[in-house]
Amino acid sequence: MSVVVVTGASGGIGRSCARAFAERGAAIALIARGEKGLQAAAEDVRLRGGTPLVVPTDVADAEAVEAAVEQIERELGPIDIWVNAAFSSVFSPVWKLAADEFRRTTEVSYLGFVHCTLSVLKPMMARNRGTIVQVGSALAYRAIPLQSAYCGAKHGIRAFTESLRVELLHEKSDVHVTMVHMPGVNTPQFRWLLSRMPRQAQPVPPIYQPEVAAAAILYAADHPRQREYWVGASTVLTILGNKVAPGLLDRYLARTGFKSQQTSERRPADAPVNLWEPADGPDGKDFGAHGAFDDRAKSRAPQLWLAHNKYKLAGVGAAVVAATAAVVGRARR
């Protein structure tokens, strides 16, 4: 039985990821701050055939993360796969952000990944096996307006992961680290992040269901030698566009980036804020895996299908080449 750890497991991508690993019969340590979300996630895991272990932890606290790793290995056994998916953020223009808000976002969304990676690397490297999957974003390559703190964290995670990956290759280690860059995903974050926008936040379309993200994470965990995976055509186009014509993309986002991240619905004054305290804490509720965009979210991503079927496609391609060569050969005789 594999031992898997998922951070940010109480909602969104992390919650969906925990469910997917549970269907494989894994033992899953669930890390997040929200008590109600964690308990509901544990029930999800049990119902799907997995073995849950709830480990309430703020990933911004390095000592707490160290203690969590020790507890998980003591109670479940050696960690095989660690998925970093926890984050928080603020929707705001830079000039309206307070220093403590930027710091807190960075502590959770960047340093949280670093703390978890450092802590689990120790036992993994001692055993010379294990996989770390970093949940990235198209915004790790191309920053957009209103999410400067989050974009900065995702850029940092990519740089940190690239350095670590090269170091592991240098050591000829069988510990692997990979990244999965996500598009806009239908998660609860758009209802619980601190926001200074006049209307409700939304993912930049096209929007994908969290199960698509979870499937990509499981695939990456199974094939961790590839340095990164891109999910969704929008992610690929965003990254390529930034490489080819970043100035044009700047102007395009200046025109469209504010409106595309907001719905027509006014933001309630009493909306929950999870930057400092979890929205699914004792006085909150379980938000689940899905956000408010089920009617618009896609349940498939072509890049994921291609990744799953690349060996079959390679075989078909080889057969087509061989058949073409045979036809050409007969035509020449």
Rank of each mutant, 00 (worst) to 15 (best):
N84E: 08
S89P: 00
A98F: 09
F190H: 15
E107F: 07
H155Y: 15
A149S: 05
S163Y: 01
H181T: 00
A143V: 07
V90K: 01
H170E: 13
F87N: 06
I132A: 05
E101C: 04
L146I: 10
V114E: 03
K96D: 07
H176V: 00
S109N: 01
T131W: 04
F190R: 13
C151H: 02
N84S: 13
Q189R: 00
P188H: 06
F113T: 14
H115I: 11
A98N: 10
E167P: 03
G184K: 09
G156W: 03
F160G: 11
I79A: 15
A98W: 05
A153T: 13
P78H: 14
I132R: 06
L194Q: 11
S195C: 08
D100S: 15
A85I: 00
I79S: 13
G130K: 13
G130L: 14
E162Q: 14
V83Y: 01
K154E: 03
N128E: 11
A126W: 03
R191N: 14
Y110S: 03
M197T: 15
V180G: 08
S195M: 05
M125F: 00
L146R: 09
I81W: 14
S137R: 04
R158E: 09
S173H: 11
A98Y: 05
H170A: 09
N186H: 04
D174K: 15
M124T: 06
A138P: 00
N84V: 03
L194R: 09
S173F: 10
G77V: 10
E171L: 15
V83C: 00
S195D: 06
R127E: 10
M125D: 08
T187H: 01
E101V: 02
S137F: 05
W82N: 08
T178D: 06
V94K: 00
W192N: 14
V114L: 06
G112I: 11
A149I: 03
A126Y: 09
S163T: 13
S88E: 01
F91D: 00
H155K: 00
L168S: 13
F91V: 06
G136M: 02
Q189G: 10
H170I: 10
L121V: 06
S109T: 14
S148N: 08
V114G: 04
F113K: 09
S88T: 15
V114I: 12
L193M: 00
S163H: 03
L97V: 08
F190Q: 12
V108I: 15
I157N: 12
